[in-house]
């Protein structure tokens, strides 16, 4: 029936005029929108509405458990005069930039190391993915213990290797605290990079390497002129993903330092949490969270367009 009507539009039109309900429901557009209605409503209610409500909140003076008063852009102006806000901004960009760079370089090394023939490769690959799989909070708590001021195993190993006692104060020193959260974020995200890039490497046709070798290319030149150009789309996608979720990271910092010492590791997400949940200023907190929006929107639009193209 339908197949015929699709092939002969004129006949289909005639049939549609007095189509029974079952035929109406079978139209592609009607079927599609009915099918998507429930999930779309759900997303509108719990993502769309909170998003716009958050913008409204950011324009209000709104202590927790009170009704809000509209104050225009005052929250945003408060932020611009808040030195901690600017420190948080700098922290977030440093954290995202350095951690992403380390994950990219480390991930590429991991992928190149794994892209060789050896026994038990599948087992090794599974084990290497563990940091990425295990709930972040639980592995971060292990790192908290590894960097404990009194019993840090890292420091005990460093001291055994000749480092002067008692070893660095990883979470107590502002600079080292930033170094620590960057290292742990890298530790967690590196397998994701590595395994994704490995999958990309395996799609590179061996003939290209053979051709390059015949043309006299060294190992490094093959990497530079054959591998990297072919991996570019994958590297770009993984990086955009990683940047988005590193930029908005919360749990790692919350568990490890709570943003301290002296806000040295406070990021947008943890600072917004402090102001909204700790100090109970929902409006001001919402404005801090929204400060992430310009950068995030740019990244999200870029990635969405890119994923559509691929």
């Amino acid at each position: 029936m339908t197949v015929v009507s699709e092939r002969l539009p004129a006949l289909g039109q005639a049939a549609r005029r007095r189509a029974p309900l079952s035929l109406v429901l079978d139209r592609e557009s009607v079927f599609s929108w009915l099918m998507m209605a429930l999930p779309l409503l759900f997303l509108a209610a719990l993502v769309g509405y909170p998003f716009f409500y958050g913008i409204l909140l950011s324009l209000q003076y709104r202590p927790v458990a009170h009704t809000g008063t509209f104050i225009g852009l005052k929250n945003f102006i408060t932020n611009l005069h808040d030195p901690i806000f600017w420190q948080v901004t700098a922290n977030t960009f440093i954290y995202t930039g350095v951690a992403t760079f380390l994950k990219m370089v480390g991930g590429l090394c991991l992928a190149l190391a794994m892209n060789q023939h050896f026994r038990m490769k599948n087992l090794v690959r599974a084990l290497l993915l563990l940091p990425f799989i295990v709930p972040t909070v639980l592995s971060t708590v292990a790192w908290l213990w590894m960097l404990d001021p009194a019993f840090s195993v890292v420091n005990r190993l460093l001291v055994a290797l000749g480092w002067p006692k008692p070893g660095p104060s990883w979470l107590g020193n502002p600079t080292l605290a930033m170094v620590s959260i960057i290292i742990i974020n890298t530790w967690r995200g590196l397998p994701f990079y590595g395994i994704t890039l490995l999958a990309g490497l395996q799609t590179v046709p061996p003939e290209l390497y053979e051709a390059a070798t015949i043309d006299g290319a060294s190992g490094l030149q093959r990497l530079r002129f054959v591998t990297l150009p072919l991996l570019r789309p994958i590297i770009l996608i993984v990086t955009l993903f990683s940047v988005i979720f590193t930029f908005a990271d919360f749990q790692l910092v919350y568990v490890l330092t709570h943003g301290g010492p002296q806000n040295a590791t406070n990021l947008f997400a943890t600072y917004a949490f402090d102001i909204a949940m700790g100090a109970g200023q929902l409006g001001l907190g919402a404005s801090i969270a929204l400060a992430m929006l310009p950068a995030l929107a740019l990244l999200i639009v870029a990635l969405t367009i890119y994923m559509r193209r691929v």
Binding site: F51, G54, L57, F247, F250, A272, F273, A289, L290, L296
Partner: peptide, 8 residues
């Protein structure tokens, strides 16, 4: 990401 939405 969730941190954008958790307050509202």
């Amino acid at each position: 990401p969730q941190p954008l939405l958790f307050i509202p």
